[in-house]
Design a protein around this nucleic acid. Structure first.
Lengths: 253, 253
DNA sequence: CATTATCCGATTGTCGGACAATGGTCCAGC
DNA sequence: GCTGGACCATTGTCCGACAATCGGATAATG
């Protein structure tokens, strides 16, 4: 910390504000394992005393960490050290990609590489419980084919389930934001090309069945076909491939 | 906002604290395009007046957004709306993966899928400038082969350059955190297996040359070989594949 | 007139203190 | 031993103040 008696930094060449140093200090303690996941964060007053700054400054530092998922509330009051949640990271990533005006083309290209791979791995490794949930999602889609919003939510969830089934959390984290962005951009698609939803259902069914019967090549093949088809549908729906993806604020609320 | 005269929330069922609502409000304005990237964030006092809360509360909300990259300082004072920076996102992602105790195995599996793909795309699309930088990085490695820290930094930078050369920002964002984690975990490797660094140099040279001469299949092949070899080296170095990756706090400072 | 030095206002960073709300704790009484 | 209420700890919010500093306006200078 090193603040002088009045709480202001000593010389002049110390640009980083106090709240940032607080955040970095706490983050450092977490990364160094000094504060372990699950531990309670010390109360604000103690932190203020320990780091020699005012409670307000501590609070500002905490907010930064809280937002990035390193701190999480458990009992409405105290904060605990936590590992960033997957969906929170996915949200941050899609937000970043969206604001960086990533194009459909870029996202699709990556998805075309990741999703068939995920499907293949999932087919090799999926367990009973995950199989059940995968098939249940398909059923749910059947019942809500008319509801565009529900179709989109299903689409995202379906692909997330497959990623989950690979048991590879790195893959989950990488794939989630892509699906989140691509699929939430398909709203217009279902309006412009109503039968797209039926093709979606059939494709998902074929993929799910292949995965559940542990047919890895089949799962990969169906998924590749599905993603290709998704692009054709997007194009046929009159949506531009090279424009920044129009990302829907609602998906991130 | 909806705070009562004393600045406290009206009923009881309103759990979300004010600073979070502030953050969400501002984030919403950004995502809705009401505040565009590059715009100056209104000054704290104005925001406080607009949202009907105290300046302290506004500040806490701002901290959250600042940390996630949506706000960035330009002139040491005012904050501007910004698109989250790629390296900042990569840092957040690797931190998340590390704290979630992702294993080497998981990361490597994904890398084995992504990197050859990236190398292939890079070979198809790399431009003059990028070629130059790629080769320069190799030269730099030659001069610093003895410095383990420099070797690791080169390794990360080299793979990032290749991702850049694909022109696919989604791919960049996905690949960066993986490299960041995997390569910074190789510190012990170079100590235990000194000649690993020479193999690294040769492999990188072969990959770079293939990319620069636009030999896509060659680039993919060399890269695949390189990643396979990386795993063998990691294993040979006595590092555990199934343990959570030991991630170095220094890489995230 | 152009250039530099100076000053001033606007804005952020930090402080200290205050208080309401609320969850948790602990003791009294049954 | 259990329950209910008093009490305390902790967070969320507000308020007012002030130092530091950046940017621009203004004055001094050649």
């Amino acid at each position: 910390m090193n603040l002088n008696s009045k709480g202001h930094v000593l010389p002049s060449v110390n640009n980083t504000p106090g709240y940032r140093k607080v955040a970095e200090t706490i983050e450092g303690e977490i990364l160094k394992g000094n504060l372990k996941v699950g531990d309670l964060l010390p109360i604000e007053s103690d932190l203020a005393a320990q780091l020699g700054v005012n409670r307000s400054t501590i609070r500002e530092g905490i907010r930064a960490l809280e937002n990035s998922g390193l701190l999480r509330r458990v009992e409405a009051k105290r904060l605990v050290i936590a590992a960033p949640d997957a969906t929170m990271i996915a949200r941050a990533n899609s937000r970043a990609m969206g604001l960086n005006r990533v194009t459909f083309q870029e996202l699709w290209e990556l998805q075309m590489e990741l999703e068939p791979f995920a499907a293949q791995l999932a087919a090799e490794r999926i367990n009973e419980d995950q199989s059940h949930r995968l098939l249940a999602t398909i059923k749910e889609l059947e019942d809500n084919l008319a509801n565009d919003e529900a179709v989109i939510q299903h689409d995202i969830a379906f692909h997330n389930l497959i990623a989950d089934a690979t048991g590879n959390r790195a893959l989950c984290l990488s794939a989630a934001p892509i699906g989140m962005l691509l699929f939430s951009a398909t709203e217009d698609l279902y309006r412009n090309v109503p039968r797209a939803r039926h093709r979606l259902l059939e494709a998902h069914r074929a993929i799910a069945e292949a995965i559940v019967r542990h047919d890895a090549p089949g799962a990969r093949g169906w998924m590749a076909k599905h993603i290709q088809d998704f692009r054709r549908g997007y194009e046929a729906g009159g949506l531009p491939l090279d424009a920044p993806i129009s990302f829907d604020a609602r998906a991130f609320g």
